[in-house]
Every structure is written in C-alpha cells, then in structure tokens.
Design a binder for these strands. Structure first.
Lengths: 176, 176
DNA sequence: TCAAAGCATCTTGACCGGCGAGATTGTCGG
DNA sequence: CCGACAATCTCGCCGGTCAAGATGCTTTGA
C-alpha cells in the first residue's frame, strides 16, 4: 500500500522520510473519508449530505449562516444538486430553510436539533481520539505539526486551483 | 470555516492548538479530495476511477498485482461496481485484465501505458509541491511530523473500523 | 419618482451515469 | 460430484449536471 512515495528515491534518508509522510497523509485522508462515509451510511445519509451538514453547522456556530449558493461553492456542487441536497436534509429534519428578511432572494440554512445532535455525535468520538494522540506530544512539537500542516494545506489548495484552472469547466471557487 | 475545532475550549492555548491542527487536517483532506476530483474530470474520469487507477499502480509497483476483489475492499465498493469500474478503465486503455494462470478464477489488474502515464502526471506536480514545503523543515521537525501523522493515521483507521462495526451493513475490510 | 432592464439567487425538470443487490457463470479444493 | 469462492451480468435507484424558469433586488434614465 504505497503511493506517490513510490516515485521518490528511497536511498536518501530524507527522501525516505518525505515519502513516509506523504503516505501518512494520504492514508489519513482516505481513511477519514471512509469514516465520514460509514457514519453517514449508518444514519441514512450519504457523504455529501454529511459534509453539507457540517458546513451548515460550522457556519451557524460562526454566527454567519450559510446560503445554498455558498454551500455549493464549498462542496463544489452545481446549484441544482444543492437544492436537492437541501431538500433531503430538510425532509430528514436535519436543517431548515429560512428566508432572509432583508434580501428575500436569499435562503439561510440553519441546523435543526436533529442535525446538531448528529454533528456532535460525529465529532465527539473523533475529537477524543485526536486528543489522545495529541496528549503524547509537547507544545513545541504540536507547533511544528501545525506549521507543517498549515503549509501543506495551503499548498494543496493552490494546486487544487491550478488543476481547476487547467480547463474552465467548473470555475467554482471556495470563498474561504 | 471552522470544524470540530469549534467544539473545543478555545481559552486554553493548547486546546486552541489542537483545534487549529484539526482544522488543518480537515482542510487538507477536503482539498486533496477536490484535487483528485478536478484532475479526474480533466481527464474524463471520475474520482473513483482515479483512486482505482492509483491502487492498481501501487500494487503493481509493489510487485503484487491487485485483483478486482481486493480493489473493491480498498475502495469500499461492491463487486458489481468494481466490474463496471474495471470495464471503464480497461475500455479507456488505462489498465488491462490478466487471468491468473494458476487459479483461473482470479483476475489480475495491470496498468497499461496510458494509465501509468496518467498516474505520473497526477503525482509529479503534487510531489514537487510537497518537496517545496518539506524543504522548509529540518530533519528533526519532519520526524516529529511523521510520528504525529502516523499516530493520527492509525487512530482514524481504528475509528473507521469502529464506525463500520457499528452496524454490520457493509462489513468491508481493508486488508492492510 | 418610477418603470423597465439587468443581475443574483434559488428552484424545477429532463437526462445520465455510478453504485448496490441478487442471481449467474466459471473454477478450485476435497 | 459438491460446496466455496471469484468475477460478471442485469436491473433499479439515487444523486449529479445542465439548461431553463421563477422570483426578487438594484440600477438607470427620463
């Protein structure tokens, strides 16, 4: 079970480290994705629905409720898909629509109780596992990890935009 | 754009660090996923196809060609989906089927030239971006990152199995 | 001031394709 | 010959894209 670590020189110890870390990251990503998939299936939704629910939750907790349009940007979904998605989540009682009183074109998405409970149920055990791991690292070490991950995150984000720009087929942009 | 970092106490500086790292990881995962999606779309396949191609490539480079069954395990796909998937990839000239001479039930999947080229084209720029980031870290720092990611990876893997075991609906197992 | 054009946001409907479930075919081990 | 196993086939569902439409804000120009 290798990855693009395979395409490096493994004689050099630093190259070896690089490929190990690369593998770690990929395995983490894939498995994290599978966790989401399994959890979603367990509760009668699909992976997209769960991502959406999390986005709605995040936005709401940040005090800045999300709209279907912005949700579509974040999930890289077309507007039609978003409507169907929101329909599903609303029908299942996870979120509800609220029209903006100022600009009545807009629809704000809010977590209903079931949705909030589900998000907590998803994150709570994940969070405690994470805490367990982090407890085995010093503050300085965690700072290094943070610096590294922040840079990797920015880098892959740039790369994503570059790949998307390669052909103007889906000029979606995440607002940040 | 927060995440389950939201569900932590942010007064404690260590808790703050924890939630920052958690956010980094999630953003990385999501964006990495989007990179795959965009790249795949650019080449007329979907995300699953690309994952499969990578798995076939990895197995082949490891000297242990993969079978449709094991591929389905890795991608968490049903056997029917795998057949369709392999059909698509074979029709597109990315891989080819080879029956095992010993056990003629088994089919080995091998990368065709187009598939190998595509995989390289996917990983090469990603690898150089990664190298750029890593160049800004010392050996010791990278060692810390590796230790951290290895533990996180193992942890999320355990969690994945726990969630999957919650209901025996899709008792898929990655062979490791 | 106000009507009309223009833009933004969401929704609808038609269509397509991936995925899962179950039955089927071919193959190995006893 | 008989179970166990691997892959394939067939079918239906569901989520996705796309294009068009409905609604409401905003700007413009007499």
């Amino acid at each position: 079970m290798a990855s693009h670590g395979m395409y490096r020189r493994r004689d050099d110890p630093r190259g070896r480290m690089a490929s190990d870390i690369t593998n770690d990251l990929r395995r983490y990503s894939v498995d994290a994705q599978h966790v989401g998939h399994a959890f979603a299936a367990l509760h009668g939704l699909n992976a997209t629905d769960l991502h959406a629910l999390i986005a709605v939750m995040d936005a709401e907790l940040a005090g800045d409720p999300i709209t279907p349009g912005r949700l579509g940007e974040q999930l890289n979904l077309s507007s039609g898909s978003v409507t169907a998605l929101v329909d599903r989540l609303e029908r299942a009682g996870h979120i509800r629509r609220d029209r903006d009183t100022a600009d009545r074109r807009k629809v704000f998405l809010h977590c209903a109780d079931r949705g909030a409970a589900l998000a907590m149920e998803f994150f709570q055990p994940l969070g405690s596992r994470t805490d367990q791991v982090m407890a085995r690292f010093s503050d300085d070490e965690l700072a290094v990890v943070h610096r590294f991950m922040a840079e990797m995150s920015a880098s892959v984000r740039e790369h994503r935009d570059a790949v998307r720009a390669a052909r103007p087929e889906s000029p979606r942009r995440t607002t940040d």
